[in-house]
C-alpha cells in the first residue's frame, strides 16, 4: 500500500525535469577491487574472464533489485551462538559484530539483506567438502542474516572464527574472517566480501587478501575492536561498516533526442 503511494509520487513526466533525480551508479573502481586474475590465488587463474568485460551503462535492469522484508528474518537468524545449538551454546570467543551499510554518498542503506557465514572457533566449516582436521562443533552451523534498519544498521552475535589452512601453496592459511553477502536496493550493488579482525598478523600473509592491491582497501575490510560496545562479562564487539555503490544525482539532465 505504502509502496504504491511512493511509486506514484516519483513517476510521471513532470518529475523528469526535476533536479536531484537519482541516476545510474558510479562506475566501480576496479583498482580498489581485486583484479579477476591474481595468480597468487591459484584458482583465479582459470576462473577469471579471458575476454574484457563489456561496458554496460546502467539500465532499469541494474538499477532495480529484490527487497527482502523484515518478515524474511527469524528471531535467531542473527545469533550464530544459538541458531544451530543442539546441546548448548557454540564454543569460542563470544563476539558481537555490528555496523552500518552505507552507499558511496555516505547515506545509510535501509532494508539491505546482509548474509554472513564463517568457520567455527577451530577454523572448520560445516560442509561435506571440508577436510580440515579441526573438530566440528555440534552446536555451530555457521550461517546467519540480518536486514538493516532505517539507519542502515545491522548486528549479530557469533563466535570468533579460527584461522585455517587451505590448499594453495603448501602452507597457506586464511586469517580469521567472516564472509558477507549484501543486497542493497539495486542489483548493480550486489556484493560479496569478507571481514577481517583488527591486529591479525595473518591478514598480511594471505594470498586472497592480497588480491586487493591497496592497503587502504584491505583496511576497509578490517573490523575494529570496540571496547565501548562490548557486553560486560559476555562478549567482545567489533564494528564493521560496509559501503555499497552509490548513485549519481543528476543536477542537469542530459537526455537524448526524442525523449
Amino acid at each position: 500500500m505504502q509502496r504504491k503511494a511512493i511509486l506514484s509520487e516519483v513517476s510521471g513526466p513532470r518529475q523528469e525535469q526535476m533536479t536531484g533525480l537519482e541516476g545510474g551508479f558510479y562506475q566501480r573502481d576496479r583498482s580498489w577491487h581485486p583484479a579477476a586474475l591474481t595468480p597468487q590465488y591459484k584458482t583465479s587463474v582459470l576462473r577469471s574472464p579471458q575476454y574484457p568485460l563489456l561496458a554496460l551503462e546502467n539500465t532499469i535492469s541494474e538499477m532495480t533489485g529484490p527487497r527482502f522484508g523484515h518478515g524474511t528474518i527469524g528471531p535467531l537468524d542473527n545469533d550464530l551462538i544459538r541458531n544451530f545449538a543442539k546441546t548448548g551454546d557454540a564454543i569460542g570467543q563470544r563476539i558481537i559484530v555490528y555496523g552500518r551499510v552505507l552507499d558511496e554518498n555516505a547515506r545509510p542503506v535501509p532494508g539491505a539483506l546482509v548474509e554472513f557465514w564463517q568457520a567455527n572457533a577451530g577454523g572448520r566449516y560445516r560442509h561435506k567438502k571440508e577436510t580440515y582436521l579441526a573438530a566440528i562443533d555440534p552446536n555451530f552451523g555457521g550461517c546467519g542474516r540480518a536486514i538493516t534498519d532505517a539507519e542502515g544498521r545491522y548486528w549479530f552475535r557469533t563466535i570468533k572464527p579460527g584461522a585455517y589452512p587451505w590448499p594453495n601453496g603448501v602452507n597457506d592459511w586464511r586469517p580469521a574472517h567472516i564472509h558477507f553477502s549484501l543486497f542493497g536496493h539495486a542489483f548493480a550493488q550486489r556484493l560479496i566480501t569478507q571481514m577481517y579482525f583488527e591486529g591479525d598478523p595473518m591478514i598480511w600473509q594471505c594470498p586472497i587478501v592480497s588480491t586487493i592491491a591497496d592497503k587502504a582497501a584491505i583496511d576497509q575490510l578490517t573490523a575494529v575492536l570496540d571496547r565501548n560496545a562490548t557486553l560486560p562479562m559476555d562478549a567482545l564487539a567489533y564494528k564493521f561498516d560496509i559501503v555499497l555503490r552509490g548513485r549519481r544525482s543528476t543536477m542537469f539532465e542530459n537526455r537524448m533526442e526524442g525523449n
Binding site: H33, E104, R126, H127, T211, A216
Partner: peptide, 30 residues
Amino acid sequence: TTLKESPSQTAGPYVHIGATPNWVEITGVW
C-alpha cells in the same frame, strides 16, 4: 565526501553455507 565501495572478496568454496544452507545440510536455522 564520497566513500569508497567496500572491495569484493571471493565467495569462496563454502558460499552455500551462507546462501543456501539447507542445500548443504545445515537445516533448522531457517
